[in-house]
Design a protein around this nucleic acid. Structure first.
Length: 313
DNA sequence: AACATTTACAACCGCGGGTAG
DNA sequence: TCTACCCGCGGTTGTAAATGT
């Protein structure tokens, strides 16, 4: 009873198609149309089952098939339609001229599905995953990203402070000079700044190369960043503005991690040895201080007044 | 250079709906 | 209404190519 499956038919060839077989099939269909697929192999002189011929034609030999990489537009269409239709590959293919359901299915399984999983999105529901284990890699990546961005803000703040050390700026702002002196951040030519240089930075007990902060190679994997990390954190002409924002946010929120150098009372006898302090001061602690940073360094007008000096550096 | 592993994709398999007799 | 057959669909497998060790 019932029909015999294609694979059980006698003398039916399976496996990859040869160029000769492709040519026979193409020639026959172009001359006669496919008609009955079941009858086609015999008429075309092929030792294949009708089903195999149909698949070969519709998925590979059909002249209107588009080859090559899927465009961003096609990817977006697949993602959108899949979120509505699910695994209805033929329905999705109907919206993508030249693409077969098989090709879309393969592309989904090998590229798009994996990408959604990496982004912490359930490929079947298109919703963010809720179970902790399945999105553990994303959580780790986010934790790494947070750490990187905190260090980046620290670097920005310190670079801003370094810019403020310029003699012309200090000469015009005695209050700033006092504050900088109070941080142990002020250095002379004979006594280099222990915390910051153009290419490295003191963080707690360690020293980190600036290149570690600002290279894509060291960026955390995953995390769903919508733009290259380098674009987000690179120090360029906007660094002054970013530094100022960092300073202001830290100033207004003392309960959060504070990357600013603490102000120290310079009248104290124990704070004169910067070399000793360099090994003990931790920016992360932000310990209690009787002194405050002068308000004017957080204001736009101060920045604008000194922008020309800062940009000459 | 050799081997192992991963990736990409063509092809196969089985199921279910539709239809003619 | 039942049966045999055809066709299309979605899931799965096999394998060549690419990449890593």
């Amino acid at each position: 009873m019932g029909r015999s499956p294609c694979s059980e038919e006698n003398s039916v060839k399976k496996g990859p198609w040869t160029p000769e077989e492709d040519q026979k099939l193409t020639d026959y269909i172009q001359k006669n149309g496919h008609g009955s697929w079941r009858a086609l192999p015999k008429l075309a002189g092929l030792k294949r089952c009708g089903k195999s011929c149909r698949l070969r034609w519709t998925n590979y030999l059909r002249p209107d098939i588009k080859r090559g990489k899927f465009s961003n537009e096609e990817e977006n269409t697949i993602l959108h339609l899949h979120s509505i239709l699910g695994n209805k590959w033929s329905a999705i293919a109907a919206h993508l001229p030249g693409r077969t359901d098989n090709e879309i299915k393969n592309y989904w399984n090998t590229h798009l599905k994996k990408r959604l999983i990496q982004m912490g999105i359930d490929p079947m529901t298109h919703q963010p995953k809720t179970d902790l284990f399945s999105c553990l890699p994303q959580l780790i990546a986010l934790a790494n990203l947070k750490e990187l961005l905190e260090h980046t803000q620290l670097a920005h703040n310190l670079q801003y402070l370094n810019l403020l050390r310029q003699p012309t700026i200090i000469a015009n702002n005695p209050e700033l000079a006092t504050a900088l002196n109070a941080t142990n951040f002020m250095a002379t030519d004979q006594e280099p700044n222990p915390y910051f240089s153009n290419d490295s930075l003191q963080v707690g007990q360690g020293r980190v190369e600036m290149s570690d902060f600002f290279s894509v190679e060291n960026a955390p994997v995953g995390g769903g960043c919508s733009q290259p990390l380098q674009q987000q954190v690179s120090i360029d002409q906007e660094v002054v503005g970013q530094c100022q924002m960092g300073l202001m946010s830290d100033k207004s929120s003392s309960s959060t991690w504070n990357p600013l150098p603490p102000l120290m009372d310079s009248s104290g006898s124990n704070n004169t040895n910067s070399q000793e302090n360099s090994s003990t001061v931790s920016y992360g602690g932000g310990g209690a201080s009787a002194l405050n940073w002068p308000d004017f360094i957080f204001e736009d007008s101060f920045l604008e007044d000194n922008l020309s000096e800062i940009r000459q550096i």
